[in-house]
Design a binder for these strands. Structure first.
Length: 269
DNA sequence: TATCAGGGCCTAG
DNA sequence: CTAGGCCCTGAT
């Protein structure tokens, strides 16, 4: 099926933006995304048109929200304070980025793992978990292992998880599994919570601090007013903005601005 | 081979 | 509130 996307949409930038760790580029111009039990192969054609291997219903119900395509990013970019030259540069550089609406469970586990790891190391651990506990799906291109649900991960032992190179994070993952499978933490119910409630509930999980909670809120629950502050963003706030958080002023788009700057500081030559 | 930092968080003091 | 420790990997 062929679709048209006229707003900002750059698949390579999205994949390299550090918010998702299983999306990838295959050969032949094909990009692959996974969410829940859905797998998408998408190929840019020409002039805002793309080939996707899903049905119209699936595009509408799953992938359109996944890529946050209801939001007008070009409009957002046009509303930036032009006196903020660093922000302007970052946004020009990162045009095409989008904030994904990912699966909350996968996002929670992934960002617990992310602490004190490089992106390649995160990818490796997440992939190992999928291969060990996830359901395999045969596609025309490859065997994909879906990211396991909390229930599917429930039998995991500390020794098994150690094989996924989680290090000191293993007890954190076990705590997350326990809280979700017991109903103590209902990730679906959190969609209805306000930002503060969501943030506080996520932080009840051992190993989830401010940064990880903000990442899950932003990259799964699309809470774009929230700004994860990691070491890179910290450096920009301190070095470029003299310690003053430059994102707050953008209100409900603050988290999106953070993503442009995160991408810029990581990728710029 | 050795060293270092990596999208932090928890605990003790 | 702050310092130190944490398990491991990828990069140099």
């Amino acid at each position: 099926m062929q679709i048209e996307i006229t707003d900002d949409f750059d698949l390579s930038k999205i994949i390299d933006s550090g918010q998702c760790f299983r999306a990838k580029y295959l050969d032949g111009g094909i990009y692959r995304f996974i969410t829940g039990s859905n797998i998408l192969y998408i190929t840019p054609l020409s002039h805002h048109s793309y080939d996707v291997d899903c049905t119209a219903e699936s595009w509408q119900e799953i992938w359109l929200p996944y890529f946050d395509l209801d939001r007008d990013y070009a409009l957002l970019r046009s509303q930036i304070d032009s006196s903020d030259s660093y922000m302007k540069t970052a946004i020009d550089y990162g045009t095409g980025l989008r904030i994904l609406r990912q699966d909350p469970w996968e996002t929670l586990i992934t960002f617990i793992i992310s602490q004190q790891k490089t992106i390649p190391a995160i990818r490796s651990s997440v992939e190992k978990i999928a291969e060990k506990y996830g359901v395999p799906v045969e596609t025309p291109y490859e065997t994909v292992y879906l990211f396991p649900t909390a229930e599917q991960m429930a039998p995991a032992t500390p020794h098994e998880l150690d094989l996924c190179k989680l290090g000191y994070r293993t007890p954190y993952i076990l705590d997350a599994i326990r809280r979700v499978t017991s109903g103590l933490l209902d990730l679906n119910a959190l969609y209805a919570c306000d930002n503060i409630q969501l943030f506080d509930m996520l932080k009840t999980v051992h190993g989830v601090g401010d940064k990880v909670a903000n990442c899950v809120a932003l990259f799964a629950y699309n809470r774009t007013a929230l700004v994860p502050v990691d070491t890179w963003i910290r450096k920009v706030i301190d070095g470029v903005y003299d310690g003053h958080n430059p994102f707050i002023r953008y209100g409900s788009a603050a988290g999106i601005m953070q993503q442009y700057i995160f991408y810029y500081v990581r990728q710029k030559p």
